[in-house]
Design a protein around this nucleic acid. Structure first.
Lengths: 228, 228
DNA sequence: TCAAAAGTGTTCGTAGTACACCCATGT
DNA sequence: ACATGGGTGTACTACGAACACTTTTGA
């Protein structure tokens, strides 16, 4: 019962939707991008591959990212959903354990192919659905966790962070309120330094994220536990 | 690349942590319970088993629940995490895709073994961790979704619903505020009827959940999208 | 001195929490 | 009548959203 019988021909793969905020030549302003690798017929795919016999799935995901896309240093990686439709890929039954990855804009991106999530090329199989799940997860967690630590550079002015939030959420975010919200929760800390300005305007104060790992800042929308 | 190679000897199983709120002889008041099946050596296990060649994972989970635990009508079933530690079970590498299931207290439970989650017997492998993940997911979603529809009977007075929330969350919930919170979101609706009282006291009004499927009621803790 | 960008402060509305008080019924 | 449980109302507080206003720099 607990031990699966050996005739089950189910293959297990990992797929990662790795996101960042950046700009490309065609779209000059900051937007959300996903890391893709070329596949057959001019289509694209999410990096991933089969689970090796005794390797951890997260490790496998990272190895695939390094080998296929040259994107080794992911600032955050978390499980997304399992995609298990029997016919999601042609041929043998293949179940995908998927991950959401986030990389900082100042991370090295040697030859990685970043595509704007709002103008994706044709994708293999159900990979577009995986990207959608990743975007929704990110947007949700921006609202109640410090997950933006994995999208921002080490130091930044608030206007830059506001643009990152805006790009990831798809709508503008008020910079001054963002400062208040993140300060109240101690998500960000002022470094004390300021950035030299390039052409007029007051030099902005610099901030950094207090933690470099995921932290839930708003656990309960309502029905909070009593204080004692 | 997209097609895993056939030598990968990874087994895939499904495991479900099915929860309900009920009472047992030893614990007379309402508490959260999990459905277990007997395993070897007097230990217990979560219902589950291998994924059949071309069956959907959720269907497999339901079939296992029916066959092993006689608990067919689950009011809600959703994916939890993938547990993939290479040594989580002895023998062949086995990856578990896990699910959270919820059943209503008035559902038939012919001979099912419900155990209080706060006093679990010894469990197989990492099944205790799966139960913990299920509890956390439930507690979180109680705060920002209508997920309690799957824990409550068809009709109920507010005091009963308040007990259900309290049992699932682990702390008391104010009945009158719960009514306001759920009414404002149109999560519950008054049926118009009242329950006959058994020994004094005003007869309580009856309510039902407006929807019978999961609905997110508080998508954003903060950084809400602008109205236009 | 003016434009540009950043930061501060204020107002407003909403909504959750806690708790007091009133209502309906059986005994 | 009174105990018992249910329902309504109200103050309080917190906090996010929106936006006006002030500050600091470069040209």
């Amino acid at each position: 019962m607990g031990i699966p019988d050996d005739s089950t021909p189910v293959h297990l793969e990992v797929r990662s939707a790795v996101l960042r905020v950046g700009s490309t030549g065609s779209l000059p302003d900051q937007h959300l991008q996903v890391l893709l690798v070329p596949a057959d017929d001019g289509a694209w795919a999410l990096p991933g591959g089969p689970i090796a016999g005794d390797a951890d799935i997260a490790d496998t995901a990272l190895a695939c990212l390094r080998e296929q896309a040259g994107a080794g240093d992911v600032a955050h990686l978390e499980q997304l959903e399992v995609f298990s439709d029997p016919h999601r890929v042609p041929g043998a039954r293949t179940v995908a354990s998927t991950y959401l990855g986030l990389v900082r804009p100042d991370a090295p991106a040697d030859g990685s192919a970043w595509h704007p999530v709002d103008a994706l090329p044709p994708l293999i199989a159900d990979h577009a659905a995986i990207v959608t799940a990743a975007r929704q997860r990110l947007a949700g967690k921006l609202s109640y966790t410090n997950i933006a630590f994995a999208l921002a550079p080490a130091e930044f002015p608030m206007s830059e962070l506001s643009e990152i939030y805006g790009a990831a959420l798809g709508y503008p975010v008020d910079t001054t309120n963002l400062l208040r919200i993140l300060s109240r929760r101690a998500v960000i800390t002022a470094t004390g330094g300021v950035r030299r300005t390039r052409g007029g305007g007051r030099p902005p104060a610099l901030y950094r994220f207090t933690d470099a790992t995921l932290r839930v800042t708003d656990e309960f929308a309502t029905l909070r536990p009593p204080l004692m």
